[in-house]
């Protein structure tokens, strides 16, 4: 058995909806059947075979080669198995996924892990805006699982996030943790402006103090040694991530906010 491989034939102008290309939907299909599946790419009808050169037979491991940031909805709703993407991934990577693992060797576009429920996404590159967020009108962003980004994220990381972890090895963009309901976002690098804006609950764990300081909509709760942090680091240690190499700390400065809202969120800055 070899990985079921989708090699993008040429960079398309229109965005391609790759949501049909998961183990859950392809199990038991032959390459020919898969090639005949209709895909949405702009308003013209295309098939998977028009878009990809398809090979391999193990849909438990799906590989996208030559991938581009116009390949949207990869791993949409997947429940298990593994997807590896060589190149960029488009928007809504891993949307609604409940299990399994996605690895991107490249960067991902907006809404990575949108409303995901479980499993793991690893971006070996940067991610766009709204990592782990909820679509407009929806109330819950990711509700489980782990997203690891080796590079930087765009704005609104974890917007409306409800559970799960987002680990950013590089820098987080503006409004990181905005409207967060719960869950944990940890950042090794820097963070942008408006950190935790309108967050209700949840934890923003920073390995270093924000360059611009903590804004006035958070109140300082002092320095503390928090008992849950060793547990968190023990969890990090299991991951294929720079977070596994960080020497664990449990001594932090704790800030609570956003005080404009219910103010139950926290920013924890390593001391």
């Amino acid at each position: 058995m070899s990985a079921l491989t989708f090699k993008l034939i040429f960079e398309r102008a229109q965005r391609v909806d790759c949501s049909p290309l998961t183990k859950d939907k392809l199990e038991g299909k032959t390459v020919a059947e898969i090639a005949a599946l209709p895909l949405v790419a702009g308003r013209q009808p295309v098939t998977a075979g028009d878009v990809f050169e398809i090979s391999g037979d193990d849909c438990r491991h799906i590989v996208f080669e030559n991938s581009s940031d116009k390949l949207d909805f990869i791993g949409h709703g997947m429940s298990d198995g593994e997807i590896t993407i060589h190149g960029a991934a488009g928007a809504y990577l891993g949307q609604f996924m409940t299990g399994g693992q996605i690895t991107v060797n490249g960067s991902s576009d907006i809404y990575t892990g949108c409303e995901m429920k479980g499993g793991q996404i690893k971006i070996n590159g940067n991610a766009g805006d709204f990592v782990g967020a909820a679509r407009p009108g929806y109330k819950n962003g990711m509700t489980g699982g782990t997203i690891i980004i080796s590079g930087n994220t765009g704005a609104r990381t974890g917007d409306h996030m409800r559970r799960g972890m987002i680990l950013i090895e590089g820098d987080a963009g503006d409004y990181c943790g905005s409207r967060m309901v719960s869950g944990t976002i940890a950042v090794l690098g820097g963070v942008g402006r408006h950190l935790g804006y309108a967050m209700k609950r949840g934890t923003l764990l920073l390995n270093q103090a924000p360059a611009q300081g903590i804004s006035a909509n958070f109140n300082d709760c002092g320095s503390h040694t928090l008992a849950f942090l060793p547990l968190l680091f023990a969890e990090f240690a299991k991951l294929d991530s720079g977070f596994a190499k960080v020497s664990p700390f449990s001594r932090v400065q704790r800030y609570a906010g956003d005080i404009g809202g219910i103010g139950m969120g926290e920013i924890l800055v390593r001391l």
Binding site: G183, L226, A234, E235
Partner: peptide, 25 residues
Amino acid sequence: DGFQISKMIGGKRYWRIPVMDGEFL
């Protein structure tokens, strides 16, 4: 009293309860 914090770590839920010496986990 509403200040408690829930944390899911490694698939388990923990509660952080503020107490006078810090937090009870």
